[in-house]
Amino acid sequence: MNDLEVRQLRYFVAVAEELHFGRAAARLGMAQPPLSRTIRDIERQLGVALFERTTRQVKLTAAGEVLLRDARTALEAVTAAAHRARQAGSASPRLRVALKADVDGGLLPQVLDTYGADDASLPPELVLGGFGEQPQALRDGLADVGLVLCPFDSRGLDSEPLLTEPVLVALAAADPLAARTRLCLDDLADRKLPGGSPAGHGRPVEHTPQPGATRPASNLSEIFSLVETGSIVFFAPASVAQRYPRPGISYRPVCDLPDATLAVAWPQDARSPAVAAFVRAACTVAAAQHAQVEPLVQSTTT
């Protein structure tokens, strides 16, 4: 049996994720007949059926489910290998740090200073992304180390927790709930988060747009503007609330909202001294800042 090609795996994953040959072909920018032939070729190579096809639907078989899981991992590894090779071959390779802007527990400036003091190489390159995008950037080889909010998809990654802090709700100062010193998720049942989900579901970093929702706010400035008008509420780690006091916004604790834990994460197979130096710097700074979390929370809620 010949080994499967990367092209075949990409075609299979597209069909497996879309469960529709027409949509998968459009996603791949190709006609449907050659895509169907490729899937049949893969099934002949493996000697198993990967899909159950009827006139109404396409479903994965048990073998298809297994191949989908492993094909995703294989494609991620191929993509990461190309990105890492390109990075290593650049004239001046720099450590790439994946993060969401303003979601660093207030630690990033000190971490960069500490890392720079221990490492004489070029300053790190910051790879900015949206909420939850950092783990995939690490798996894809687009970044070498990242600051992530827990829980996250840890496949293929190692991590070390840095800082755990309460998550507060940002409300319009004129909102009746702002008159209370502490809230519960049930109190927020009729409020919406930036992605359109009910705030009462308690997803601290939920920014995925819901069906029928308008485009979610893309940055903190937009989010805070919407909060001030009473259009949405926003769950923010205490460090973000402390960094962004605004007259039109009140921050309040939510008694049954889980704390936010910031972690530093890196690929399990990383052997870079620069990655190790950054992780050491992050852990050192986080340990020094740990005692300041409680006073910070008190200052943001008074």
Rank of each mutant, 00 (worst) to 15 (best):
E160Y: 02
S299I: 11
R10Q: 15
C184I: 15
P166M: 09
K192W: 01
G156P: 01
F224C: 06
P33C: 04
Q8I: 10
R69P: 03
A82M: 07
A263W: 07
L188N: 02
L19V: 02
E52A: 06
A238S: 03
A14V: 12
R10W: 12
A213E: 13
S250E: 05
V127F: 04
A288M: 15
D153F: 13
T208W: 12
C283K: 13
L193G: 00
V240P: 07
A179K: 04
C150M: 07
S239N: 08
R215S: 06
L108V: 00
A26D: 12
R203M: 14
L35E: 00
D259K: 03
A189M: 12
E228K: 02
Y251L: 00
E65R: 15
Q57M: 09
S154F: 04
V205C: 11
F152S: 03
D102S: 12
D190C: 01
G130A: 14
L122E: 02
L19C: 04
A31Y: 00
I249A: 00
P253H: 09
A25V: 00
A270E: 15
A288T: 14
D190I: 01
A63S: 14
A77E: 12
P33L: 12
M30L: 01
A286I: 05
R7G: 06
R44I: 10
